[in-house]
Amino acid sequence: PPVAAEEISATVVAGHPPVFRWVKHVSQTFIPAVNAALEGSDYSISWSEQYGGSLAKVGDELEATEEGLAEIGLVSSLFDPAKLAVQNVTYFTPFVSSDSTVVAEWMDKLQANDADMKASWEENGLEYLGGATGIDDYLLMTNFPVESISDLDGKKIGAPGPAVNWLKGTGAVGVSGNLTTYYNEIKTGVYDGVIVFASAAVPGKLYEVAPHVTRIGFGAQYAGGIAANKDWYDALPPMVQKALKGAAITNRIAYHKDLDATVGKFLNIMEENGATVTQVDEAFRKEWADGMDNVAKIWAEKLDADGVGGSRVLKSYMDTMRDAGATPVRNWDQE
């Protein structure tokens, strides 16, 4: 006689609402992929999807999953830089690669193979499933044209926490800011510009107030991925574990395909709405990168002092990206 199917319950948590692409794909790609993999087996999952702060705010997904309030979390390492320190390596190494698909694929591989990356998930009671959230190339959007770096002198530029470091050495004043208020802050003049990615700039209509879009090539970033509560995961039947990790890969591929398809479109939309999109040359990029402090080194040394292999991870990431064909403007690990 057939064994009665066992139903496993899983609460999935994300701090952002599903209008954000990375959350939408968890709901529309990851979950259906798990269900498809389990179809016809003895197991099925009953999902409870908790997005948009209903169970945890942005940056609190890790703790909610670690404590077991949710079984699976879309964990943002970007907003948990202390607990997932090594995962933030991309934000400390700008000008490496502008291809978010490549960055995400290799970061996912590092989560599985690099000892320090793995340890960092385990210390937080999590099993990393995969599904890296890559962020498309960050842009500089300003209300004044940027032809040379000296144009930035004394200008106030809003940027997400770690990207404030990118502005050091340019003469611009980096102000730690929040995506939700960029529009008004530029409009009233609190900021003269922002560092932001295209897939956020278009919905926020930032091109209206900051029509000068400069593609500096800061690079694509890794912002986090899908992780499960470790105790819960370890107790799952192997085939369910396999289904979850397989679905995370499917999710990463679908998300980045979607992202790539829209980024080009978004730049066009900005131009159609009167923005000027300029791409800086290699010399400009090099001048910018050379003028910066080596934040990667400061960051790696702090981690080394805390007993985490910061310098090793930095080298490992840079090597991995160089092997994958990236030509970093500055080799942060070799100074």
């Binding site: 609402p17 209008v19 948009g52 008004n184 919905p203 209509k205 209206e208």
Partner: peptide, 16 residues
């Protein structure tokens, strides 16, 4: 209104 703008991808300036 800022929160609503974030949820719906509408311009906060327009909402204001």
């Amino acid at each position: 209104l800022i929160l609503y703008g974030l949820l719906t991808e509408q311009s906060v300036g327009d909402l204001f």
